[in-house]
């Protein structure tokens, strides 16, 4: 390992600033009592946060986003869990094509997915709303969930499942007594991260929600009017804090399992 490189260190820190500072302006201005987001700050206030409580549209949008997010993350994690198991466990013909097909939503601009879903939904004569949005989110979250779960399952020692079969458990018993508890940190991480992806997703929602706005749709509508901006800032700040906490929790869970695995591995080498 090389020793030190201060130029690179300074550059890296600047890059971190580039990543973080813009996002931090949202919470900063959310406490400013002016209507414009400009310097100098005019005074401290929490009224924009108070204002959020009074908006029933916001509450509806929040509720819609939670509903979509919970369904999308649960369904996509379940689907992805089976798929991840197949890829991590078996070798079979058509493996690469199947993997490519499931990862495809990741490799297609979202607007195209949105537009094609819009066309089929209207062609089938269905009403736009949260259902097509949820379907789109499931499609979009599945590759993410699968990547997270494959990372988890790939290091999994499949002889544990064989040991369970050998000790008299059938396939279901093995799944519930051995696989599920061991996959659990990965499953929770996948649920949390899929929920966040769905919760923040805008383009699919924009094309498919019709009149039932999700939270990003609500914010989008508010961003157009300067006088409504401050409470969007407050909402944004809340969302940023909330997402950060969930993501940190997910990362922690993911590493929790992997840390254990590493420790075990270390002991093996040690002896």
């Amino acid at each position: 390992m090389e020793q030190k490189n201060n130029t690179l260190l300074i550059y890296t820190l600047l890059y971190f600033a580039f990543l973080y500072v813009p996002v931090l302006f949202l919470p900063l201005f959310s406490f400013n009592d002016g209507n414009y987001m400009s310097f100098p700050l005019t005074g401290f206030t929490t009224e924009h946060y108070e204002e959020m409580w009074s908006k029933s549209n916001l509450h509806n949008a929040l509720w819609a986003s939670i509903k979509v997010g919970v369904v999308a993350s649960t369904v996509s994690t379940t689907i992805a869990l089976f798929a991840a198991k197949a890829f991590a466990r078996y070798k079979f013909r058509g493996q690469n094509i199947s993997y490519g097909a499931i990862m495809m939503p990741f490799l297609i601009p979202e607007i195209i997915l949105a537009v094609s879903l819009l066309i089929i939904w209207l062609a089938l004569g269905f009403k736009l709303g949260l259902v097509p949005v949820t379907l789109g989110h499931i499609l979009f979250c599945t590759p993410f969930a699968m990547l997270i779960l494959i990372a988890r399952i790939e290091g999994f020692d499949f002889s544990l499942e064989e040991a369970s079969r050998d000790l008299g458990e059938n396939a279901w018993g093995t799944f519930f007594r051995v696989s599920l508890p061991l996959y659990l940190p990965g499953i929770i991480a996948s649920l949390l991260l899929s929920f966040i992806i769905s919760f923040d997703e805008f383009v699919l929602a924009f094309f498919l929600t019709g009149s039932d706005a999700t939270l990003p749709m609500y914010m989008w509508a508010q961003m157009r009017f300067v006088q409504k901006l401050p409470h969007v800032l407050a909402l944004g700040a809340v969302i940023i804090v909330f997402t950060t906490l969930i993501v940190l929790l997910a990362f922690w869970l993911r590493n929790l399992g992997q840390g254990k695995k590493k420790a075990e591995f270390g002991i093996n080498i040690h002896e």
């Binding site: 089976f82 798929a83 078996y90 493996q95 066309i119």
Partner: peptide, 30 residues
Amino acid sequence: EPAKAYSLLSPALILVILVMLIPLTLMLSF
């Protein structure tokens, strides 16, 4: 093994076919 693998994959593949491939084909026809 392939039979087991594909039965595990089927929900994901059905999802991709129904929610992506068929809509994309329809978009192409439109």
